[in-house]
């Protein structure tokens, strides 16, 4: 019954382990498992340093997704799950992580993770997830001071971008670059709703717009959508983006343009911010004697 479509939305799943660190040298090993509605990440940290992680698509069963993500993160590390002192579950499926010691909301975890990823100067974090979009303000320790979240509507979420990748027949990881291969910046797609935006894009293609121009118009619409979220919460420097869309330069550059501010850059993987935050909360809890 599920309609077969070319899977342009499908992004690559992967795992990573530190080439230098050895788990036997760590005093406290903690983990964060972020079960999102679209993707899941498991992050293992030793004494607050990133040791290993995985990023994969969430399956229909949250506990199984959590186990798979953790197994894959630990693969080839020579370490087993029982060496982890404290596991924090976060994300939409946070209460369904069978081996977690505690569940913490992803808003708190993303702020903490962004603080680790981008440094203590971060005050505003935009997390663009698969099925939601969060604007978060935090202090120099990564503690949340205000937040706002949109999970009612797909506009401004990764899922909305996946729908467009499918419609245009463009692989999702190429969308960002292609959105700049245009003669001039087009007006943004005017419909906020993804369903109506899709119809509008189809119409533009029929009118003879090149594909890249349509992509640019949608990236701009998405940027505008999240801009209004940040505007409502109030912007304070420095600004950083986490989540899957942070990897889409087409949206990121246009958000920067609207906000008239540059987002902090990182070499690290923006999709693991939530799980990193979870692992760091785990460490704090162990140190406070609550683990």
């Amino acid at each position: 019954m599920e309609k077969k479509e070319s899977e342009y939305w499908r992004w690559k799943e992967y795992n990573w382990k530190s080439p230098e660190l050895n788990w036997e040298d760590f005093e406290i090993i903690t983990a964060g498992v972020d079960i999102g509605s679209v993707s899941s990440q498991a992050v293992v940290m030793g004494d607050g340093e990133l040791f290993a992680y995985s990023n994969m698509r969430t399956g229909s069963d949250s506990p199984e997704s959590a186990r798979n993500a953790m197994d894959w993160a630990l693969k080839d590390t020579g370490m087993s799950l029982d060496k982890i002192r404290y596991v924090v579950g976060t994300g939409y499926g946070r209460v369904n992580v069978p081996f977690a010691n505690k569940a913490i909301t992803e808003i708190a975890c993303h702020a903490r993770g962004a603080n680790w990823m981008y440094g203590p100067s971060v005050r505003t974090v935009l997390d663009m997830g698969g099925q939601d979009c969060k604007a978060i303000r935090c202090d120099e320790r990564g503690k949340v001071t205000a937040f706002l979240m949109n999970d009612k509507c797909a506009a401004g979420t990764g899922r909305g971008m996946e729908v467009f990748a499918d419609l245009l027949g463009v692989h999702i990881q190429d969308i960002g670059e292609l959105s700049f291969e245009i003669d001039e910046e087009p007006p943004e797609v005017s419909s906020t709703c993804v369903v109506f935006a899709k119809a509008e894009a189809s119409q533009l293609l029929r009118e003879g717009w090149p594909k890249n121009k349509v992509i640019a118009a949608y990236c701009a619409a998405m940027a505008h959508r999240v801009f209004t979220l940040i505007e409502r919460l109030g912007m304070e420097k420095e600004f950083a983006i986490t989540g899957g869309i942070a990897k889409n330069v087409g949206v990121v550059k246009r958000i920067e343009r609207e906000l008239k501010i540059e987002a902090l850059k990182t070499e690290k993987d923006t999709q693991i911010a939530g799980a990193v935050g979870g692992a760091l909360f785990g460490k704090t809890l162990v140190e406070k004697g609550k683990g």
Partner: peptide
Amino acid sequence: MKANYGYKDGSGEYFI
């Protein structure tokens, strides 16, 4: 912490 719950739609902004 100021926690904002709600949404924005065609008719306005609704946050608690």
